[in-house]
């Protein structure tokens, strides 16, 4: 069930990236895709009824810590990408005075 929900989230993100005309909404779509993937990885490592992998005395049943560690990296990369993308959007807005992708494409073809 959880996997299907994650997949749905992924599809929502991709749909946003493809159909939205506004550049910032496209970046939001990318972020949703990223979150879906983070959830997917966490689900891979998850087991019912187990606890966080902090190895103190008496803790036996833990989830797989590796996907969580991987996702920390992926989240950091996602933040970098978002920041860069927003910076580029700012520049695009200064040059073309619009955030609508089809208008921008029309303008850049006429140059």
């Amino acid at each position: 069930m959880e996997f299907y929900l994650t997949f749905l989230l992924f599809l929502i993100g991709v749909w946003g990236m493809i159909t939205k005309e506004n550049l910032i909404k496209k970046i939001m779509g990318l972020n949703i895709v990223d979150s879906a993937i983070v959830l997917f990885f966490i689900l891979i490592g998850h087991r019912q009824g187990s606890t966080a992998p902090i190895m103190e005395k008496g803790i036996k049943d833990v989830v797989d810590p590796l996907p969580q560690a991987l996702m920390l990296t992926a989240i950091v990369i996602g933040i970098c990408l978002t920041a860069l993308a927003l910076a580029l959007v700012l520049k695009i807005d200064k040059k073309y005075h619009t955030l609508n992708i089809s208008q921008i494409e029309k303008l850049s073809q006429n140059e």
Binding site: M17, L23, I92, K95, E111
Partner: peptide
């Protein structure tokens, strides 16, 4: 330049996907 920034943004979105 305008086109370079546009190209970079396109590449960013497609490649991130």
């Amino acid at each position: 330049e305008n086109k370079a920034i546009k190209a970079s943004f396109d590449y960013l979105l497609i490649s991130s996907l």
